[in-house]
Design a binder for these strands. Structure first.
Lengths: 257, 257
DNA sequence: GTGAAAGCGCTAACAA
DNA sequence: TTGTTAGCGCTTTCAC
């Protein structure tokens, strides 16, 4: 059965030492071609598959990374981000462990515990919170962390970010260039720090185009849930920083013209 | 630094044998309470974190499972599915490795190779294709596989499925109950086997309600891409099994009334 | 209840 | 180029 054979079995079958098998499989160029062929042949016949754990233990690297992502998110954007990470890491010979962390709770424990245990070689943090372990900062760890989307550079974690303000302005600019004058800004959940920045970007675009900021109306996606219940239908939610529009009141439809 | 201490260090610090440390940490009830306290204390002071790989190697189980999912999917449905798997597996002490497989290519290799290598204890297959390894079926493997959404039971893989036809009929039934008579069926990409079944379910509902099947019009999400280019805007794509509507031609808007 | 010792399966010096 | 050997860090008999 597949996976039953050990390296020693292959060695025996090929009539070589176990270390030669190891080399033939990991560093083929260090082995005589004919020997190598015998070994590969034997391995194939035995349906030999190397044991990853043994290798990982011995080498001290797991070729596994972890993506710590928000627990309750099924957004396509996150999927795309994961796909991107996965693609690059796969190309580099790594696999990705998914860690959905609960925002509220002591997620850090959950994250860094297995991470430090040597299960993963590094962690991608897609979260507004910096993961912790037993009240110690990640800096006290050998574990490489990288922040994504959220800036943790002040915590000593290199972070890859999107310039939300710039690109929001850019997006709004496109609409304006198309001749649109009334812009609806649909924000995500109420706690999205990114939305505030993006909103500013949209206003930037309005300013730049010499259009009144009051032509931007805001609506939160979260409307359907919490706040919506307390508000008359058709009334848009406005963020604190959003200038109040004059009457007639803006609708909450996603029109952009 | 966190993670630098070994079990032997803890043993030395606590003045016990290494095996006692192991027990104290894995099977506390087998160790004298006072001894255990000393050990725990020492472990804490040394910021000891057990090495997962060593444990995995020794125990022969990795407490890791793999989810093999379609490569190009960022659908919220998939995220939800993953979240569900993750939640249950986490509760059971397992973590999830993400494997995005390319549909077309010999994905099976990619999946089962590391799987068989002892990296994971089991695999969730969310794919229309059964993963293979070196032209051998999964049955020749010790690795537990479970099919999700796609039925692989004929290949000997237990599968957890959604009764698409039933629930599509149910959904359509709700619309009908609300008084709607014109139903738009928005399908996914052209190759979705599920869509055909769901479409049948919608027609079931029409039949049951005594409504004409011609009141169901189909539009594919994929319109925007491949087929759409060759079709006049506003014209809906119709699946082969979908009865042709009478004029006026249905629009492709997602209206349901 | 605790310790000593034998590995899990593999890799990497070091020799030959 | 190939073989011998010593572990990686942990769990688990088997004694005491």
């Amino acid at each position: 059965m597949i996976g039953d054979a050990r390296m020693a079995d292959v060695a025996a079958a090929a009539g070589v030492a176990i270390s030669t098998v190891s080399r033939a499989l990991s560093n083929p160029e260090q082995v005589n071609e004919r020997t190598r062929e015998r070994i590969v042949q034997a391995a194939r016949e035995l349906s030999y598959v190397p044991n990853a754990m043994a290798r990982k233990l011995r080498r001290g690297a797991t070729e596994l990374t972890m993506a710590a992502v928000p627990h309750r998110s099924n957004s396509p954007a996150l999927s795309d981000l994961l796909a991107g990470i996965d693609e690059t890491m796969t190309a580099a010979g790594y696999r990705l462990i998914l860690e959905r962390m609960d925002r509220a709770d002591a997620a850090g424990r959950f994250i860094l515990d297995p991470a430090l245990s040597g299960t993963v070689d590094g962690v991608f943090v897609v979260s507004s919170k910096v993961p912790q372990f037993a009240h110690r900062s990640p800096e006290q760890t050998r574990l490489p962390l990288v922040g994504l989307l959220f800036d943790h550079s002040s915590a000593g974690i290199p972070s890859v970010l999107v310039d939300d303000r710039y690109w929001a302005a850019e997006a709004a600019g496109r609409l304006i260039a198309l001749g649109h004058r009334q812009i609806a800004f649909l924000a995500g959940a109420a706690d999205g720090a990114h939305d505030i920045v993006r909103h500013a970007g949209v206003l930037d675009a309005m300013d730049k185009a010499g259009l009144p900021r009051t032509s931007v109306s805001c609506a939160s996606k979260a409307m359907g849930r919490s706040r919506a219940a307390r508000r008359p239908p058709g009334a848009a939610w406005r963020c604190r920083k959003c200038p109040r529009p004059r009457s007639p009141a803006p609708t909450n439809s996603p029109s952009a013209s």
